[in-house]
């Protein structure tokens, strides 16, 4: 099974997690671990442009990160979701719960 890679980098005031590969029940642990480390502590952007598939496991991780950010008054943004990631987000019926930026360059200041 193809693995997932989650790279963490700083970009201005944002901590950016760049995800590559499929997010499913076998791979979501790494994403969960890294989002939990940062969610609610920093302004976090999750770059989903490299996501090849995303199941509900990935949505759950993002939702938890969003709720942590809201609780702590931090910002959370999904960046450039791939087509499959966008569809997974839309399937929740609450796309507006996932603030989205079209690219890393267009992250809010």
């Amino acid at each position: 099974m193809t693995g997932i890679s989650v790279e963490v980098a700083e970009r201005g005031s944002w901590t950016v997690l760049s995800v590559h590969g499929p997010i499913n029940s076998y791979t979501y642990n790494e994403l969960q671990e890294k989002t939990m480390r940062h969610a609610g502590r920093v302004d976090m952007a999750v770059d989903l442009s490299g996501v090849s598939s995303m199941t509900s496991a990935g949505i759950g991780v993002l939702l938890a990160a969003i709720e942590d950010a809201e609780t702590a008054g931090k910002r959370f943004v999904v960046v450039a979701p791939s087509e499959v990631a966008r569809l997974a987000i839309e399937s929740t019926g609450f796309s507006d719960r996932f603030p989205t930026a079209p690219s890393l360059k267009e992250l809010p200041a």
Partner: peptide, 8 residues
């Protein structure tokens, strides 16, 4: 339920 839990 734990944070991030949802039901579809």
């Amino acid at each position: 339920l734990p944070r991030g839990t949802f039901f579809s």
